[in-house]
């Protein structure tokens, strides 16, 4: 086990990952991590504009986990204080920052989400802007707990096309992972 931790660190280092989290994530944790990431980038003389964009991606992806991850801490189910598990990664590679998230979702939600993401990856930045504005004027989708705008915003901000993957775990769950770059 102990050797594995070092192995994990070297793995993360080779991919330029300077932040990695796996476990239950809350809004409080998001705020503290976000502030630390901003401080770190500030100390490294990253431009304020880039720092905010990385932070924005981090917030949207973390809040996706908070709202939608299907892996819920059993003791905290129902109502306030509900905790959901996920993975969040922030790294720097080839001159770009990137943010990756991963969480469990129910198999029944895979096709809806996949279609939505394929639709976004096929749109140009101008089309995404129009679509974003259209959706912003509409009431959120019934499944949405935020505004349903998160993925569109991420697609607009990402300098490379969104990358995503779905992996079936068992009869009930799949693992969803997602990457954006700035």
């Amino acid at each position: 086990m102990l050797e594995n931790i070092y192995y994990l660190k070297t793995e993360l280092d080779t991919q330029g990952i300077f932040f990695c989290f796996s476990g239950p994530i809350s809004q409080t944790l998001l705020m503290e991590i976000g502030e630390t990431l901003r401080n770190k980038m500030h100390q490294e003389k990253t431009s304020p504009s880039t720092i905010l964009k990385v932070f924005a991606m981090f917030v949207e992806q973390a809040q996706n986990i908070i709202h939608y991850s299907a892996e819920i801490v059993p003791e905290a189910k129902a109502g306030k204080g509900e905790l959901r598990n996920g993975i969040l990664v922030v790294g720097y590679e080839n001159g770009h920052y990137y943010v990756v998230c991963g969480n469990m979702i129910e198999n029944t939600d895979v096709s809806f989400l996949r279609e939505q993401l394929i639709q976004l990856t096929n749109m140009s930045k101008d089309e995404l802007k129009v679509y974003y504005k259209e959706q912003r004027r509409k009431a959120p989708h019934e499944k949405s707990k935020g505004a349903g705008l998160g993925f569109i915003e991420l697609a607009r901000r990402s300098v490379t096309p969104l990358k995503f993957d779905f992996r079936k775990i068992d009869e009930k769950f799949a693992f969803f992972s997602f990457r954006t770059e700035i």
Binding site: E60, Q63, P140, G146, A147, L149, G150, E153
Partner: peptide, 13 residues
């Protein structure tokens, strides 16, 4: 408002 998330975007509109 120097930064806001996507659900705030709809609220502001």
């Amino acid at each position: 408002i120097s930064y806001f998330n996507s659900s705030t975007s709809r609220m502001l509109l």
